[in-house]
Design a protein around this nucleic acid. Sequence first.
DNA 1: CCCATAGTTCGTAACTTATGAACTATGGAA
DNA 2: TTCCATAGTTCATAAGTTACGAACTATGGG
Lengths: 129, 129
Amino acid sequence: MRDMRPLIHPSIEDITVEGILHALSDPVRAAIFAELAVCAGATCSNFLKISDRDIPKSTLSQHFRALREAGLIRSERQGVEMRNSTRYAEVEQRFPGLVGTIMKAHQAQAEERLRAGRRKAAAKKSKAG
Amino acid sequence: MRDMRPLIHPSIEDITVEGILHALSDPVRAAIFAELAVCAGATCSNFLKISDRDIPKSTLSQHFRALREAGLIRSERQGVEMRNSTRYAEVEQRFPGLVGTIMKAHQAQAEERLRAGRRKAAAKKSKAG
DNA sequence: CCCATAGTTCGTAACTTATGAACTATGGAA
DNA sequence: TTCCATAGTTCATAAGTTACGAACTATGGG
């Protein structure tokens, strides 16, 4: 029976731009990373529901692995659960501004979408009522 | 027989962060974009050889399409060939700093790799000689 | 009209990603 | 201990994406 592999955390010099971009080009992963930035030590299952979507836990596990192997987060077992934190400071040192700018853009876009959503809802309401 | 579809250029507000990150997470596409930034109006076949790699033209065509549909470049037919230019200014306005920071990071990494390559070559030479 | 050059599209093989089911790991209760 | 619950991982496979040769479209010049 297959044993469980140890978690892989690339050393700072093995982190690549391609890897970071690819990892953060997925909206779910970007949302996880954003949340971890404000809420260090969150566990995986804290994200079973994210941005109004249900994510199956196997999928979630893959997303965490992707972030981990891109060098964006660090995961450590703590008892029965997994504590995750960002490696922002390290990555920032290697590629100054990269991750911050990406997350800022993601956030700007999310806010824009929220506004657009509200506009649409308001329009519908005024038509109906 | 299938007709040729017109080229698709998303309007500025339809450009997404995910799309940009995904497009630029491929080293070939990032290299094309970087080259277009310095050398506006280059044609597709100018890139059949890029970073010491031969890219088949069908693959190249897909890469250009990916950049175009992410909103990063504009392509216009000019006679028998296609002139490509970046939409950097527009994208910069929508997501300030995003593309510039990404390209800077890509470049820093490329230079680092060059240095590492030279180190390795020098070490091999000193061992052999 | 035919040819050459420049790109696109298509078919398919290779790779990636998503997800349910079955597993491992850990700690606490009986 | 043994059993159980919780937290994540791995596996199998289905669905989606990407790479690339071959065949196509498009354009301009003999």
